[in-house]
Design a protein around this nucleic acid. Structure first.
Ligand SMILES: [Zn+2]
Length: 523
DNA sequence: AATGCCGGGAG
DNA sequence: CTCCCGGCATT
Protein backbone atom coordinates (compact mmCIF):
# COMPACT_ATOMS: atom_id res chain seq x y z
CA UNK A 1 0.00 0.00 0.00
CA UNK A 2 2.48 2.43 0.91
CA UNK A 3 4.73 3.73 -1.58
CA UNK A 4 6.30 1.05 -3.42
CA UNK A 5 9.88 1.17 -3.85
CA UNK A 6 10.86 4.58 -3.00
CA UNK A 7 13.59 6.34 -4.48
CA UNK A 8 15.28 4.54 -6.98
CA UNK A 9 16.93 6.95 -9.13
CA UNK A 10 20.51 7.34 -8.87
CA UNK A 11 22.04 10.47 -7.79
CA UNK A 12 25.41 9.13 -7.93
CA UNK A 13 27.61 11.52 -9.60
CA UNK A 14 25.30 14.38 -9.07
CA UNK A 15 26.66 17.61 -7.96
CA UNK A 16 25.27 18.89 -4.79
CA UNK A 17 25.67 21.72 -2.50
CA UNK A 18 26.53 21.04 0.97
CA UNK A 19 26.70 23.10 3.98
CA UNK A 20 29.92 24.69 4.34
CA UNK A 21 32.09 22.84 6.60
CA UNK A 22 33.77 25.87 7.74
CA UNK A 23 30.67 27.57 8.63
CA UNK A 24 31.70 30.63 6.86
CA UNK A 25 28.57 30.60 5.00
CA UNK A 26 29.75 29.69 1.61
CA UNK A 27 28.24 26.55 0.37
CA UNK A 28 30.50 24.09 -1.12
CA UNK A 29 29.83 21.65 -3.79
CA UNK A 30 30.63 18.10 -4.07
CA UNK A 31 29.78 15.06 -6.01
CA UNK A 32 27.74 12.34 -4.66
CA UNK A 33 29.72 9.23 -4.48
CA UNK A 34 27.41 6.97 -2.77
CA UNK A 35 24.11 6.86 -1.20
CA UNK A 36 22.82 4.66 1.38
CA UNK A 37 19.71 4.44 3.23
CA UNK A 38 19.11 3.56 6.63
CA UNK A 39 16.22 1.70 7.81
CA UNK A 40 14.19 0.49 5.08
CA UNK A 41 11.31 -1.76 5.17
CA UNK A 42 10.45 -1.65 8.66
CA UNK A 43 8.84 1.46 9.62
CA UNK A 44 7.66 1.84 6.18
CA UNK A 45 5.96 4.94 7.05
CA UNK A 46 8.68 6.01 9.20
CA UNK A 47 11.27 8.36 8.20
CA UNK A 48 13.72 6.91 6.00
CA UNK A 49 16.89 8.71 5.81
CA UNK A 50 19.45 8.59 3.21
CA UNK A 51 22.97 9.41 3.73
CA UNK A 52 25.00 10.65 0.90
CA UNK A 53 28.64 10.29 0.70
CA UNK A 54 29.92 13.31 -1.02
CA UNK A 55 33.24 13.97 -2.47
CA UNK A 56 34.01 17.52 -1.66
CA UNK A 57 35.96 19.91 -3.66
CA UNK A 58 38.88 19.62 -1.52
CA UNK A 59 38.92 15.97 -2.03
CA UNK A 60 37.55 14.98 1.25
CA UNK A 61 34.65 12.71 1.66
CA UNK A 62 31.81 13.61 3.87
CA UNK A 63 28.51 12.24 4.61
CA UNK A 64 25.39 14.27 4.65
CA UNK A 65 21.86 13.53 5.21
CA UNK A 66 19.37 14.32 2.63
CA UNK A 67 18.38 17.44 4.30
CA UNK A 68 21.79 18.76 4.37
CA UNK A 69 22.56 18.80 0.81
CA UNK A 70 21.08 20.78 -1.90
CA UNK A 71 21.32 18.92 -5.01
CA UNK A 72 21.26 20.30 -8.38
CA UNK A 73 18.88 17.79 -9.62
CA UNK A 74 15.30 18.20 -9.47
CA UNK A 75 15.12 21.87 -9.35
CA UNK A 76 18.10 23.72 -10.15
CA UNK A 77 20.21 24.38 -7.32
CA UNK A 78 17.57 25.75 -5.31
CA UNK A 79 15.93 22.79 -4.01
CA UNK A 80 18.07 21.60 -1.33
CA UNK A 81 16.95 21.21 1.99
CA UNK A 82 19.15 22.29 4.52
CA UNK A 83 18.51 21.85 7.95
CA UNK A 84 20.71 23.51 10.23
CA UNK A 85 21.86 20.45 11.78
CA UNK A 86 25.25 19.84 10.70
CA UNK A 87 25.88 16.95 12.82
CA UNK A 88 27.53 15.07 10.19
CA UNK A 89 30.14 17.28 8.93
CA UNK A 90 32.85 16.21 11.04
CA UNK A 91 35.38 18.40 9.50
CA UNK A 92 37.44 20.78 11.30
CA UNK A 93 36.69 22.42 14.45
CA UNK A 94 34.82 25.15 12.86
CA UNK A 95 31.72 25.56 14.80
CA UNK A 96 28.93 24.95 12.58
CA UNK A 97 27.03 28.04 13.16
CA UNK A 98 24.40 27.99 10.61
CA UNK A 99 24.61 27.87 7.01
CA UNK A 100 21.32 28.29 5.65
CA UNK A 101 21.92 30.61 2.93
CA UNK A 102 21.38 28.01 0.39
CA UNK A 103 18.21 29.68 -0.56
CA UNK A 104 15.18 27.78 0.03
CA UNK A 105 14.91 25.29 2.62
CA UNK A 106 12.54 22.60 2.41
CA UNK A 107 11.58 21.13 5.62
CA UNK A 108 9.91 18.32 4.02
CA UNK A 109 11.40 15.03 4.63
CA UNK A 110 12.19 14.51 1.10
CA UNK A 111 10.32 11.45 0.57
CA UNK A 112 11.41 10.76 -2.79
CA UNK A 113 13.83 12.39 -4.81
CA UNK A 114 14.61 11.65 -8.24
CA UNK A 115 17.11 12.78 -10.61
CA UNK A 116 16.13 14.03 -13.91
CA UNK A 117 17.68 11.28 -15.72
CA UNK A 118 16.53 7.89 -15.09
CA UNK A 119 18.94 6.28 -12.88
CA UNK A 120 18.41 4.80 -9.65
CA UNK A 121 19.99 5.13 -6.49
CA UNK A 122 21.30 2.18 -4.98
CA UNK A 123 19.28 1.78 -2.05
CA UNK A 124 19.94 -1.01 0.08
CA UNK A 125 19.88 -2.11 3.46
CA UNK A 126 23.43 -1.80 4.08
CA UNK A 127 24.00 0.83 6.49
CA UNK A 128 27.39 1.78 5.63
CA UNK A 129 27.96 3.28 2.39
CA UNK A 130 30.68 2.38 0.26
CA UNK A 131 32.01 4.99 -1.84
CA UNK A 132 33.04 4.00 -5.17
CA UNK A 133 36.31 5.53 -4.57
CA UNK A 134 37.42 3.70 -1.69
CA UNK A 135 37.65 0.20 -2.53
CA UNK A 136 37.34 -2.15 0.16
CA UNK A 137 40.07 -4.44 0.15
CA UNK A 138 39.47 -7.84 1.07
CA UNK A 139 42.28 -9.88 1.96
CA UNK A 140 42.16 -13.28 0.83
CA UNK A 141 44.47 -15.71 2.10
CA UNK A 142 46.01 -17.27 -0.81
CA UNK A 143 47.38 -20.20 0.80
CA UNK A 144 45.33 -22.26 2.93
CA UNK A 145 46.37 -25.29 4.57
CA UNK A 146 44.07 -27.97 4.00
CA UNK A 147 44.68 -30.64 6.35
CA UNK A 148 44.12 -33.90 4.82
CA UNK A 149 41.08 -35.39 5.96
CA UNK A 150 41.88 -37.94 8.34
CA UNK A 151 39.50 -40.49 9.18
CA UNK A 152 40.18 -43.83 10.32
CA UNK A 153 39.05 -45.87 13.11
CA UNK A 154 35.90 -44.07 13.07
CA UNK A 155 34.82 -45.87 10.12
CA UNK A 156 34.29 -48.90 12.00
CA UNK A 157 32.12 -47.13 14.32
CA UNK A 158 30.42 -45.60 11.50
CA UNK A 159 29.10 -48.83 10.46
CA UNK A 160 27.72 -49.44 13.76
CA UNK A 161 26.16 -46.17 13.86
CA UNK A 162 24.82 -46.62 10.51
CA UNK A 163 23.43 -49.88 11.36
CA UNK A 164 21.70 -48.33 14.20
CA UNK A 165 20.34 -45.64 12.09
CA UNK A 166 19.13 -48.00 9.62
CA UNK A 167 17.40 -50.00 12.12
CA UNK A 168 15.76 -47.05 13.46
CA UNK A 169 14.55 -45.88 10.24
CA UNK A 170 13.35 -49.25 9.49
CA UNK A 171 11.10 -49.34 12.31
CA UNK A 172 9.61 -46.14 11.34
CA UNK A 173 9.11 -46.11 7.76
CA UNK A 174 7.76 -48.96 5.94
CA UNK A 175 9.14 -47.85 2.75
CA UNK A 176 12.58 -47.89 3.63
CA UNK A 177 14.28 -50.78 2.46
CA UNK A 178 17.18 -51.24 4.23
CA UNK A 179 20.15 -52.68 4.06
CA UNK A 180 21.67 -54.63 6.19
CA UNK A 181 24.80 -53.09 6.55
CA UNK A 182 26.87 -55.72 7.70
CA UNK A 183 29.35 -54.52 9.98
CA UNK A 184 31.41 -57.41 10.57
CA UNK A 185 31.94 -59.21 7.48
CA UNK A 186 31.91 -56.31 5.28
CA UNK A 187 34.93 -54.66 6.45
CA UNK A 188 37.21 -57.37 5.81
CA UNK A 189 37.35 -56.75 2.18
CA UNK A 190 36.93 -53.13 2.35
CA UNK A 191 38.06 -51.28 -0.59
CA UNK A 192 39.81 -49.13 1.61
CA UNK A 193 42.24 -51.66 2.48
CA UNK A 194 43.43 -52.11 -0.91
CA UNK A 195 43.56 -48.59 -1.69
CA UNK A 196 45.63 -47.61 1.11
CA UNK A 197 48.30 -49.82 0.06
CA UNK A 198 50.17 -46.90 -1.20
CA UNK A 199 52.52 -44.75 0.67
CA UNK A 200 50.00 -42.48 1.95
CA UNK A 201 46.46 -43.31 2.15
CA UNK A 202 45.39 -42.22 -1.15
CA UNK A 203 41.92 -43.19 -1.58
CA UNK A 204 40.76 -41.57 1.42
CA UNK A 205 42.37 -38.36 0.95
CA UNK A 206 41.17 -37.02 -2.19
CA UNK A 207 38.22 -38.91 -3.04
CA UNK A 208 36.13 -39.59 -0.35
CA UNK A 209 34.79 -36.50 0.52
CA UNK A 210 31.75 -38.01 1.44
CA UNK A 211 31.76 -41.61 1.34
CA UNK A 212 31.59 -42.37 4.83
CA UNK A 213 29.84 -39.48 5.94
CA UNK A 214 26.31 -40.08 5.76
CA UNK A 215 24.53 -37.51 7.44
CA UNK A 216 21.22 -38.94 7.23
CA UNK A 217 19.83 -42.20 7.86
CA UNK A 218 19.86 -43.29 4.45
CA UNK A 219 18.42 -46.36 3.44
CA UNK A 220 20.50 -48.23 1.26
CA UNK A 221 20.48 -51.59 0.22
CA UNK A 222 23.21 -53.79 0.12
CA UNK A 223 23.49 -55.32 -3.13
CA UNK A 224 25.27 -58.28 -2.19
CA UNK A 225 22.79 -59.11 0.29
CA UNK A 226 20.97 -62.13 -0.63
CA UNK A 227 17.54 -61.31 0.26
CA UNK A 228 16.26 -59.60 3.13
CA UNK A 229 12.75 -60.56 3.44
CA UNK A 230 11.76 -57.14 3.69
CA UNK A 231 13.35 -55.83 0.72
CA UNK A 232 11.55 -58.16 -1.44
CA UNK A 233 8.41 -56.28 -1.23
CA UNK A 234 9.78 -52.99 -1.22
CA UNK A 235 11.45 -53.67 -4.31
CA UNK A 236 8.43 -53.97 -6.20
CA UNK A 237 7.65 -50.50 -6.90
CA UNK A 238 10.96 -50.19 -8.05
CA UNK A 239 11.17 -52.63 -10.66
CA UNK A 240 8.09 -51.92 -12.44
CA UNK A 241 9.80 -50.81 -15.41
CA UNK A 242 8.82 -53.66 -17.46
CA UNK A 243 5.42 -52.39 -17.35
CA UNK A 244 6.29 -49.00 -18.28
CA UNK A 245 8.05 -50.23 -21.27
CA UNK A 246 4.83 -50.87 -22.90
CA UNK A 247 4.37 -47.35 -23.64
CA UNK A 248 3.19 -46.15 -26.91
CA UNK A 249 6.68 -45.70 -27.60
CA UNK A 250 8.29 -46.62 -30.75
CA UNK A 251 10.18 -49.19 -29.29
CA UNK A 252 9.25 -52.48 -28.56
CA UNK A 253 12.44 -53.62 -27.32
CA UNK A 254 12.70 -52.14 -24.11
CA UNK A 255 14.89 -53.80 -21.76
CA UNK A 256 13.49 -54.68 -18.58
CA UNK A 257 15.65 -52.31 -16.97
CA UNK A 258 17.72 -53.09 -14.15
CA UNK A 259 18.19 -56.53 -14.50
CA UNK A 260 17.71 -59.20 -12.33
CA UNK A 261 18.27 -59.25 -8.92
CA UNK A 262 20.22 -56.58 -9.11
CA UNK A 263 17.55 -55.69 -7.16
CA UNK A 264 20.26 -55.17 -5.42
CA UNK A 265 20.91 -52.56 -7.64
CA UNK A 266 20.89 -50.32 -5.06
CA UNK A 267 19.22 -47.40 -4.90
CA UNK A 268 20.63 -44.80 -3.35
CA UNK A 269 18.26 -42.40 -2.47
CA UNK A 270 20.68 -40.39 -0.87
CA UNK A 271 23.01 -38.37 -2.84
CA UNK A 272 25.77 -40.02 -1.17
CA UNK A 273 26.34 -43.29 -2.56
CA UNK A 274 27.78 -45.86 -0.50
CA UNK A 275 30.70 -47.80 -1.35
CA UNK A 276 30.50 -51.38 -1.77
CA UNK A 277 32.73 -53.39 0.15
CA UNK A 278 33.29 -56.42 -1.69
CA UNK A 279 36.24 -58.12 -2.63
CA UNK A 280 37.55 -55.94 -5.22
CA UNK A 281 40.74 -54.52 -6.25
CA UNK A 282 41.38 -50.93 -6.51
CA UNK A 283 43.53 -49.71 -9.24
CA UNK A 284 44.31 -46.38 -10.60
CA UNK A 285 44.13 -45.85 -14.22
CA UNK A 286 45.58 -43.10 -16.23
CA UNK A 287 43.04 -41.49 -18.40
CA UNK A 288 45.38 -39.60 -20.54
CA UNK A 289 44.61 -39.90 -24.10
CA UNK A 290 46.52 -42.80 -25.23
CA UNK A 291 47.85 -43.97 -22.07
CA UNK A 292 46.12 -46.64 -20.29
CA UNK A 293 48.49 -47.14 -17.57
CA UNK A 294 47.19 -48.73 -14.54
CA UNK A 295 48.91 -48.60 -11.28
CA UNK A 296 47.96 -49.89 -8.02
CA UNK A 297 48.64 -46.89 -5.98
CA UNK A 298 47.34 -43.47 -6.18
CA UNK A 299 50.67 -42.07 -5.50
CA UNK A 300 52.04 -44.02 -8.31
CA UNK A 301 49.53 -42.87 -10.77
CA UNK A 302 49.85 -39.36 -9.66
CA UNK A 303 53.49 -39.43 -10.11
CA UNK A 304 53.04 -41.00 -13.46
CA UNK A 305 50.75 -38.32 -14.62
CA UNK A 306 52.67 -35.58 -13.17
CA UNK A 307 55.85 -36.53 -14.76
CA UNK A 308 54.87 -38.21 -17.93
CA UNK A 309 51.90 -36.21 -18.96
CA UNK A 310 52.01 -33.07 -17.10
CA UNK A 311 55.66 -32.76 -17.56
CA UNK A 312 55.95 -31.54 -14.12
CA UNK A 313 59.03 -31.84 -12.13
CA UNK A 314 59.05 -34.67 -9.94
CA UNK A 315 59.02 -32.42 -7.09
CA UNK A 316 56.40 -34.57 -5.79
CA UNK A 317 55.18 -32.37 -3.14
CA UNK A 318 54.03 -29.73 -5.37
CA UNK A 319 51.26 -31.65 -6.75
CA UNK A 320 48.57 -29.21 -7.18
CA UNK A 321 46.08 -31.85 -7.49
CA UNK A 322 45.75 -31.48 -11.12
CA UNK A 323 46.74 -35.01 -11.66
CA UNK A 324 43.60 -36.00 -10.09
CA UNK A 325 41.81 -35.13 -13.17
CA UNK A 326 43.61 -37.54 -15.24
CA UNK A 327 43.31 -40.71 -13.48
CA UNK A 328 40.57 -42.64 -12.10
CA UNK A 329 40.10 -45.19 -9.52
CA UNK A 330 38.96 -48.45 -10.77
CA UNK A 331 37.59 -51.17 -8.77
CA UNK A 332 37.72 -54.53 -10.10
CA UNK A 333 35.03 -56.50 -8.75
CA UNK A 334 35.66 -60.06 -8.47
CA UNK A 335 32.56 -60.88 -6.87
CA UNK A 336 29.19 -61.46 -8.21
CA UNK A 337 27.84 -58.49 -6.70
CA UNK A 338 26.50 -55.81 -8.66
CA UNK A 339 26.44 -52.44 -7.49
CA UNK A 340 23.84 -51.24 -9.59
CA UNK A 341 22.10 -48.21 -9.18
CA UNK A 342 19.67 -46.49 -11.01
CA UNK A 343 20.26 -43.24 -12.21
CA UNK A 344 17.23 -41.52 -12.11
CA UNK A 345 15.55 -38.67 -13.17
CA UNK A 346 13.98 -36.12 -11.21
CA UNK A 347 11.91 -38.38 -9.56
CA UNK A 348 8.48 -37.90 -8.86
CA UNK A 349 7.47 -39.25 -5.64
CA UNK A 350 4.64 -40.99 -7.04
CA UNK A 351 6.41 -43.78 -8.41
CA UNK A 352 4.31 -45.24 -11.02
CA UNK A 353 3.08 -42.22 -12.61
CA UNK A 354 4.38 -42.06 -16.02
CA UNK A 355 4.77 -38.48 -16.58
CA UNK A 356 8.32 -38.21 -16.07
CA UNK A 357 9.24 -35.38 -18.14
CA UNK A 358 12.52 -35.83 -19.58
CA UNK A 359 14.54 -34.17 -17.06
CA UNK A 360 16.25 -31.89 -19.22
CA UNK A 361 17.78 -31.73 -22.45
CA UNK A 362 20.75 -33.65 -21.71
CA UNK A 363 23.47 -32.99 -23.98
CA UNK A 364 23.27 -36.02 -25.95
CA UNK A 365 26.37 -35.39 -27.65
CA UNK A 366 28.21 -38.49 -27.54
CA UNK A 367 31.34 -37.17 -28.81
CA UNK A 368 34.17 -36.50 -26.72
CA UNK A 369 35.55 -33.18 -27.23
CA UNK A 370 37.53 -34.84 -29.77
CA UNK A 371 40.94 -33.63 -29.92
CA UNK A 372 40.75 -32.53 -26.49
CA UNK A 373 43.98 -32.25 -24.93
CA UNK A 374 43.93 -32.46 -21.35
CA UNK A 375 45.00 -29.07 -20.72
CA UNK A 376 42.93 -27.09 -18.46
CA UNK A 377 40.61 -29.18 -16.58
CA UNK A 378 38.64 -26.18 -15.95
CA UNK A 379 35.95 -26.42 -18.41
CA UNK A 380 36.10 -29.94 -19.36
CA UNK A 381 33.05 -31.75 -19.00
CA UNK A 382 32.36 -35.19 -19.84
CA UNK A 383 30.00 -35.70 -22.53
CA UNK A 384 27.19 -37.68 -21.45
CA UNK A 385 24.40 -39.34 -22.97
CA UNK A 386 21.13 -39.03 -21.52
CA UNK A 387 19.86 -42.46 -21.39
CA UNK A 388 21.38 -45.25 -19.69
CA UNK A 389 20.71 -48.51 -20.92
CA UNK A 390 19.69 -51.39 -19.24
CA UNK A 391 21.71 -54.24 -19.91
CA UNK A 392 20.49 -57.52 -19.44
CA UNK A 393 22.22 -59.76 -17.25
CA UNK A 394 24.94 -60.75 -19.33
CA UNK A 395 27.47 -62.58 -17.58
CA UNK A 396 29.63 -60.14 -16.10
CA UNK A 397 32.62 -61.87 -15.17
CA UNK A 398 34.07 -58.88 -13.77
CA UNK A 399 32.71 -55.59 -13.28
CA UNK A 400 34.46 -52.46 -13.02
CA UNK A 401 33.65 -49.76 -10.85
CA UNK A 402 35.17 -46.67 -11.83
CA UNK A 403 35.22 -43.92 -9.60
CA UNK A 404 36.66 -40.63 -10.15
CA UNK A 405 37.92 -38.78 -7.34
CA UNK A 406 36.67 -35.42 -7.70
CA UNK A 407 33.24 -34.45 -7.89
CA UNK A 408 34.32 -31.48 -9.64
CA UNK A 409 31.27 -30.17 -11.08
CA UNK A 410 29.33 -33.09 -11.83
CA UNK A 411 26.06 -32.37 -13.18
CA UNK A 412 24.32 -35.28 -14.45
CA UNK A 413 24.80 -38.85 -14.54
CA UNK A 414 27.04 -39.87 -17.19
CA UNK A 415 26.97 -42.85 -19.17
CA UNK A 416 29.62 -44.01 -21.31
CA UNK A 417 28.86 -46.27 -24.04
CA UNK A 418 31.18 -49.04 -23.96
CA UNK A 419 30.00 -51.00 -26.79
CA UNK A 420 32.20 -51.73 -29.58
CA UNK A 421 31.46 -49.03 -31.91
CA UNK A 422 31.99 -45.85 -30.50
CA UNK A 423 34.24 -43.71 -31.97
CA UNK A 424 35.15 -40.73 -30.32
CA UNK A 425 38.12 -41.22 -28.53
CA UNK A 426 38.30 -44.54 -29.86
CA UNK A 427 41.61 -44.66 -28.42
CA UNK A 428 40.53 -43.26 -25.26
CA UNK A 429 37.67 -45.48 -24.93
CA UNK A 430 39.82 -48.38 -25.18
CA UNK A 431 41.72 -47.44 -22.30
CA UNK A 432 38.68 -46.64 -20.52
CA UNK A 433 36.48 -49.44 -21.25
CA UNK A 434 37.39 -52.60 -19.79
CA UNK A 435 36.06 -55.10 -22.01
CA UNK A 436 32.98 -55.10 -23.81
CA UNK A 437 29.95 -56.27 -22.21
CA UNK A 438 29.89 -56.01 -18.63
CA UNK A 439 28.49 -53.23 -16.90
CA UNK A 440 30.35 -50.98 -14.80
CA UNK A 441 29.34 -48.11 -12.91
CA UNK A 442 30.88 -44.96 -12.22
CA UNK A 443 30.29 -42.98 -9.30
CA UNK A 444 31.58 -39.75 -8.47
CA UNK A 445 30.43 -38.51 -5.32
CA UNK A 446 26.95 -38.37 -6.06
CA UNK A 447 25.64 -39.43 -9.26
CA UNK A 448 26.37 -42.97 -9.73
CA UNK A 449 25.33 -44.55 -12.84
CA UNK A 450 25.38 -47.83 -14.39
CA UNK A 451 26.64 -48.39 -17.72
CA UNK A 452 26.13 -51.19 -19.87
CA UNK A 453 27.38 -52.51 -22.99
CA UNK A 454 24.53 -51.62 -25.12
CA UNK A 455 24.06 -48.12 -25.88
CA UNK A 456 21.24 -46.25 -27.04
CA UNK A 457 22.07 -44.25 -29.92
CA UNK A 458 22.38 -40.89 -28.57
CA UNK A 459 21.47 -39.41 -31.80
CA UNK A 460 17.88 -39.91 -31.25
CA UNK A 461 17.45 -39.11 -27.78
CA UNK A 462 13.95 -39.09 -28.68
CA UNK A 463 13.15 -42.11 -26.82
CA UNK A 464 10.56 -41.04 -24.60
CA UNK A 465 9.62 -44.43 -23.82
CA UNK A 466 12.87 -45.48 -22.55
CA UNK A 467 13.33 -42.63 -20.47
CA UNK A 468 10.26 -43.14 -18.72
CA UNK A 469 10.93 -46.60 -18.05
CA UNK A 470 13.90 -45.83 -16.14
CA UNK A 471 12.52 -43.00 -14.49
CA UNK A 472 10.39 -45.07 -12.49
CA UNK A 473 13.09 -46.50 -10.64
CA UNK A 474 13.00 -44.15 -7.88
CA UNK A 475 11.90 -45.58 -4.75
CA UNK A 476 11.61 -44.07 -1.51
CA UNK A 477 12.69 -40.69 -2.26
CA UNK A 478 12.80 -38.39 0.50
CA UNK A 479 12.69 -34.98 -0.86
CA UNK A 480 16.28 -35.06 -0.34
CA UNK A 481 17.74 -37.16 -2.96
CA UNK A 482 17.21 -34.61 -5.50
CA UNK A 483 20.32 -32.69 -5.61
CA UNK A 484 22.20 -34.99 -7.73
CA UNK A 485 19.38 -36.03 -9.81
CA UNK A 486 17.40 -33.03 -10.19
CA UNK A 487 20.38 -31.81 -11.88
CA UNK A 488 20.06 -28.43 -10.61
CA UNK A 489 23.25 -28.19 -9.05
CA UNK A 490 23.23 -24.56 -8.97
CA UNK A 491 25.73 -22.75 -10.94
CA UNK A 492 28.86 -22.17 -9.25
CA UNK A 493 30.20 -18.98 -10.53
CA UNK A 494 29.42 -15.81 -8.84
CA UNK A 495 26.59 -13.92 -10.14
CA UNK A 496 26.02 -10.26 -10.31
CA UNK A 497 24.81 -10.11 -6.84
CA UNK A 498 27.86 -11.53 -5.40
CA UNK A 499 30.16 -9.83 -7.73
CA UNK A 500 28.88 -6.37 -7.36
CA UNK A 501 27.23 -6.68 -4.09
CA UNK A 502 24.10 -5.13 -2.87
CA UNK A 503 25.76 -1.81 -2.87
CA UNK A 504 25.87 -1.70 -6.56
CA UNK A 505 22.72 -3.19 -7.44
CA UNK A 506 22.45 -1.08 -10.48
CA UNK A 507 25.33 -2.80 -11.96
CA UNK A 508 23.65 -6.11 -11.88
CA UNK A 509 22.25 -7.48 -14.98
CA UNK A 510 18.59 -7.02 -15.27
CA UNK A 511 17.79 -10.56 -14.63
CA UNK A 512 19.61 -10.44 -11.40
CA UNK A 513 17.87 -7.34 -10.43
CA UNK A 514 14.63 -9.02 -11.05
CA UNK A 515 15.77 -11.95 -9.13
CA UNK A 516 15.70 -14.04 -12.14
CA UNK A 517 18.35 -16.24 -13.53
CA UNK A 518 21.42 -14.27 -14.20
CA UNK A 519 22.10 -13.58 -17.75
CA UNK A 520 25.43 -12.06 -17.47
CA UNK A 521 27.19 -14.83 -15.75
CA UNK A 522 25.69 -17.87 -17.09
CA UNK A 523 27.30 -20.99 -16.09
C1' DA B 1 22.93 -15.87 6.91
C1' DA B 2 23.57 -15.28 2.05
C1' DT B 3 22.69 -16.60 -2.73
C1' DG B 4 20.31 -17.82 -6.83
C1' DC B 5 16.12 -17.84 -8.92
C1' DC B 6 11.09 -19.61 -9.84
C1' DG B 7 6.55 -18.21 -9.68
C1' DG B 8 3.59 -14.57 -9.06
C1' DG B 9 1.86 -9.93 -8.81
C1' DA B 10 1.30 -5.12 -9.88
C1' DG B 11 1.42 -1.26 -13.09
C1' DC C 1 6.19 -6.23 -21.11
C1' DT C 2 8.92 -4.27 -17.05
C1' DC C 3 9.93 -4.22 -12.36
C1' DC C 4 9.77 -6.44 -8.13
C1' DC C 5 9.35 -9.47 -4.29
C1' DG C 6 7.86 -13.84 -1.52
C1' DG C 7 9.69 -17.86 -0.66
C1' DC C 8 12.30 -21.89 -1.31
C1' DA C 9 16.34 -24.61 -2.38
C1' DT C 10 21.23 -24.37 -1.72
C1' DT C 11 25.39 -23.27 -0.02
ZN1 LIG D 1 23.39 -11.25 -13.36
Amino acid sequence: MHTRRLVKRSVLGSRVYAPSPTGDGAPVTGVVQAVKQENRDLSAAGARRSVYTVLMQDGSLKEFSEEEIASGFNHTAAKGPLKSSLKQSSSNGAPDGQKVEGSCLSPEPAEEQRSTDGKRVSRDSDTRSVSLLEQKRKVVSSSIDVPHARRSEEEVDMDKVTAAMVLTSLSTSPLVRSPPVRVSEGLSGSWKDNGSAGPFTPSSNSSSGGYWSWSAPSDQSNPSTPSPPLSADSFKPFRVPSLGGVGPGPAGPEDPILDEQDGSSLLFDEPIPRKRKNSMKVMFKCLWKNCGKVLSTAAGIQRHIRTIHLGRNCDSDLSDGEEDFYYTEIKLNTDSVADGLSSLSPASPSVLSPPPPPPSPLPSVSQLPDSHKPTQPSDTKEPHTGGTTPLSRSAPSALYLIHTDHAYQATAPVSIPSSSNNNSAGSASTSFTPTNSSSFSISWQSPPVTFTGTTVSPSKSQGFGDQRSQTIAVLSSPPRATAALSRKVRGEGKKCRKVYGMENRDMWCTACRWKKACQRFTD
